[in-house]
Amino acid sequence: MFALKADWSQEIKKRYFTLDDYTGGEARWCPGCGDHAVLTVVQRICRDKQILPEKTVAVSGIGCSSRLPHYMGTYGFHGTHGRALTIACGIRSRRPDLDVWVATGDGDCFSIGAGHWIHAIRYNMNMVVLIFDNNVYGLTKKQMSPTSPLGFKNNTAPRGTILQPLNPLTVTLGITNVSFVAQTIDWNPAHLYATLQAAHNHRGTSFVRILQRCPVYSDEVFSDIQNDPSKILFLNHKNGIHIGDNVKRLFPTQREHDPSNMSEAYDIARNHVPVGLLYHAPQTPCYEDFSSVGRHMGIEDKMKGLNDALDQFAV
């Protein structure tokens, strides 16, 4: 029914994509920036799943992490500050055949784009949303973000922030239609890979918060959990994120958590620094299943429909 050519499998083979095919311009992030790790993992997943580069769109807002599309070899859309999700949803609305990845930061998503964050979760359109959360504004040079820890000294609060940070996990879990919430860290490539792969496999909006180091402006914010990994709660479950035992043992504190259990997910998100899959509801309806209806309608049928509509106004 999709008019596949008889020899389609051969054609796919003929077009084998290497990491180069998913690579665009040279990444210009600072040395030691966690964004490099995320970019590499995204490119590897595309390669490993042989996603068609022309059918892939990387969408972003504004900020350090939002430069990601420029470093991909796929289609990309580097939008305006905070609005990546609106663009990504628009792309999916009439093109559900496109593979959409969104790169956004804690300022971009949780501050200027907070309205769209809530509603994109509710639309639940099929895309992976990567939140590069370094607890600081980088590109504009060290202002506090909604996730900056209490007392964090920065250029707009030189004596330290005065508000408790916003918890993106509990907020996201509270939104109707939420279907995939995970948290991972940029300094464990295996867990990062496994998380993004699970996110990509999920049909719906996969919200992945990545704790991401900024070596220049907020180097210290994750040092506590880096120095003492037991402060991280590793979530283990057969329906969760799977990594090898050799990597798993890097996380001394672990607990079983069924990702279909919302109240437990909320409890964990509120009281711990978890890594893994907090919540997963694979059957949640996707907005594009409604918004894309009729996209194959031919011009003849459209003319018929329009004449029908005009009839109502005939005099």
């Binding site: 609005r83 663009i87 792309i91 769209h116 459209k302 509509a309």
Partner: peptide, 23 residues
């Protein structure tokens, strides 16, 4: 729907144009 179209009521004016530009 008679011509296969869809009206998206966005969460705000900015999202409305962003969504349109995405499409």
């Amino acid at each position: 729907v008679k011509t296969g179209g869809f009206v998206h009521q966005a969460e705000d004016e900015i999202a409305a144009i962003g969504f349109a530009l995405g499409a």
